[in-house]
Simulated scan of single mutants.
Amino acid sequence: MSDPLLDRLAAPDPGAVSLDVVDTVTTTAGPLGDVLVASSSAGVTFLRPADDAGFRDEYRRRVGRPLVPADRPAPPVTARTAVDLRACSPFERDVLRATASIPAGQVRPYGWVAREVGRPAAVRAVGTVLARNPVPLIVPCHRVTKADGSLGRYMFGEAAKARVLAAEGLDLDRLERFVSTGVVLIASDTTGIACLPSCHHARRITDAHRVPFRSAAKAREAGYRGCLVCRPGL
């Protein structure tokens, strides 16, 4: 089934954004509390915590358009909120689209996103894009972790990242057990398939048949192949 958010993020570059367009700004509710939201006629263009004092200046610098107060309240922000990413570069949109494909209740490392966009060596560039994600909470950069599976930084704060992931169904205690022992892949000795730890297939592997790996290279050497759902890079 087609995902409307992914379809929007996959749309061709519509070209230059007109500088004489005026966007609106308002405060609305989000899953982590109130947020400042800038919107064009096509959707949300920029979102930040409600106490972000530099919101307007950053918006003008990045998007190049003025902001005026909205004449009506915005609906609460959810993962289905429409977005307008015309001000992003093609690479930025590719990264945001790959990030939007991560299922709720699961996480992926930055390297996974880099592979998904066809730039496996661009892990640092992917991290930069997600650190500047114009629409966090809608495009779920909170579902992207460090290479070892630890949560890492988040613009709303690390505690908020943990809170929103737990609300989405991620078992943080289970994830931490793998992180603390250096496990980055979980395989099944019955199927010969290796998954990222939060993949829903990995969660079905029983203790008796679970084979942990600390690297993709070790899993490959042992003859395991990668899960077709979470695509761990084997």
Results as ranks from 00 to 15, higher is better:
109 P>V: 02
145 T>I: 08
196 L>T: 07
168 E>Y: 05
171 D>K: 06
142 H>F: 09
211 V>M: 01
156 F>M: 11
88 C>L: 12
119 R>W: 09
132 R>C: 12
128 T>K: 13
188 S>E: 00
91 F>C: 08
114 A>F: 05
34 D>Q: 14
98 A>G: 06
19 L>T: 15
73 P>V: 10
63 V>H: 06
175 L>V: 07
189 D>L: 00
11 A>V: 08
134 P>M: 04
151 L>Q: 00
139 V>H: 01
162 A>Y: 04
227 C>D: 07
137 L>I: 14
211 V>E: 01
104 A>W: 06
192 G>L: 08
22 V>S: 10
215 S>D: 10
130 L>C: 09
159 A>K: 15
133 N>P: 02
162 A>N: 03
26 T>Q: 14
117 V>W: 06
144 V>M: 06
18 S>I: 04
30 G>S: 14
8 R>P: 01
202 A>K: 00
58 E>V: 13
154 Y>H: 12
71 D>H: 10
201 H>E: 11
150 S>T: 13
158 E>D: 13
92 E>G: 13
131 A>T: 15
177 R>I: 00
55 F>E: 04
222 A>S: 13
99 T>I: 01
122 A>T: 00
80 R>Q: 15
53 A>M: 07
200 H>I: 11
3 D>N: 15
90 P>C: 12
188 S>V: 00
189 D>H: 01
17 V>D: 11
82 A>N: 03
50 A>M: 08
90 P>N: 12
66 P>H: 07
94 D>A: 15
232 P>I: 03
48 R>G: 08
16 A>L: 14
220 R>G: 01
110 Y>T: 08
67 L>R: 05
150 S>E: 11
131 A>W: 06
107 V>W: 01
99 T>G: 02
163 R>K: 13
205 I>L: 06
65 R>M: 05
202 A>P: 03
92 E>V: 01
15 G>L: 10
143 R>T: 08
113 V>Q: 02
84 D>Y: 10
16 A>I: 07
234 L>I: 12
191 T>F: 03
139 V>C: 11
41 S>I: 08
145 T>K: 02
49 P>W: 08
109 P>D: 04
155 M>D: 12
138 I>D: 01
14 P>V: 09
112 W>F: 06
65 R>P: 04
34 D>A: 15
160 A>V: 08
185 L>I: 00
169 G>N: 12
3 D>L: 07
45 T>A: 12
233 G>W: 01
189 D>A: 03
93 R>Y: 08
208 A>D: 13
12 P>A: 09
54 G>D: 15
12 P>T: 03
86 R>F: 03
39 S>A: 15
151 L>F: 10
172 L>T: 10
143 R>I: 07
11 A>Q: 14
83 V>P: 00
57 D>A: 15
16 A>N: 05
70 A>G: 13
142 H>A: 13
59 Y>V: 03
55 F>W: 04
77 V>H: 02
113 V>P: 05
147 A>L: 09
148 D>R: 05
68 V>R: 15
21 V>E: 15
52 D>P: 04
205 I>D: 01
20 D>F: 13
19 L>G: 14
181 T>D: 13
36 L>N: 11
223 G>N: 02
39 S>F: 10
52 D>M: 05
